[in-house]
Write a protein that binds this DNA or RNA. Sequence first.
DNA 1: AATATTTGAAGTGCATGCGATTTAATCGCC
DNA 2: GGCGATTAAATCGCATGCACTTCAAATATT
Lengths: 151, 151
Amino acid sequence: MKINPQTSDLTLDDRLCVALYTASRAMTARYRPILAELSLTYPQYLVMVALWESAPITIGEVGDRLSLESSTLSPLVKRLESMNLLKRRRNPEDERSVTLELTKHGDAMRVRAESVPHQISTAIGLSESKQRELVAQLRKLANELEISYND
Amino acid sequence: MKINPQTSDLTLDDRLCVALYTASRAMTARYRPILAELSLTYPQYLVMVALWESAPITIGEVGDRLSLESSTLSPLVKRLESMNLLKRRRNPEDERSVTLELTKHGDAMRVRAESVPHQISTAIGLSESKQRELVAQLRKLANELEISYND
DNA sequence: AATATTTGAAGTGCATGCGATTTAATCGCC
DNA sequence: GGCGATTAAATCGCATGCACTTCAAATATT
């Protein structure tokens, strides 16, 4: 008899961590050809979405939204700037933080990117409500993981 | 009135892709300190689990299980070999494929790793059935994404 | 049998991700 | 006002992750 039937006899395929890991990469892979039209990577696209929603916005705020560190965002944002999609500007109020603003080109791309969510939504093949439910579960999960991590 | 109320007015936070992306990285982050005890990264741990389940196993089979390419696995496996956890051997039946076998050290680590699933399970804070349900949904999602990708 | 095609790993180049450290600016406290 | 602690970015090092290419071995085709 197994000592811990809940967890120790899980197959690789049965593990939530693997399902998450695989699904997340499958999602990124599904975005890849679509975003290639815009010459954006997946994380770059997410940063642009944050800007389209809330520009001007600081790097720190983008990091809070996407749970990414400055060590990831700083070089990524520089690449977006070199593509002329956004402009970095030191905040005059607080010279430590960097505010991101859309350039004309970056703002124009919003229109070209409008069809992206629909294309993905079609690929996902889930009803609106199922999708919302899954989002809620995943956010709850991420929350639990962060809480237990900070003990 | 919005043309496409299903998708175009989703906030960053409402998007399934972001929820997946964030939850997956939260999971990896939660594993990190636990796996540090074994001096393993998260993908390295998954490869070791595959070996503990099914050694001897080829790199290609590991790739199928985890949906990883040889360009990711080859160097990763070499690192595990340099840690003396496994041994790479060209398959005599088919010299193209590489079979992975556990070393004594790699096999011994299985015991030390036994408590990992339970530690994570506790952190996740989901009932067995909820967890299984989520796994099923995520696998279905990954499947849909792959299918629509290959059209 | 000779050749073309396919297949499994490995090599290459690039963009993440993140822990750890560094730098500069701001804050808190006296 | 001065000074140590804190904070926002940036930098560094390392390990993914993947498209693309290469190489060698096996398979299919003529």
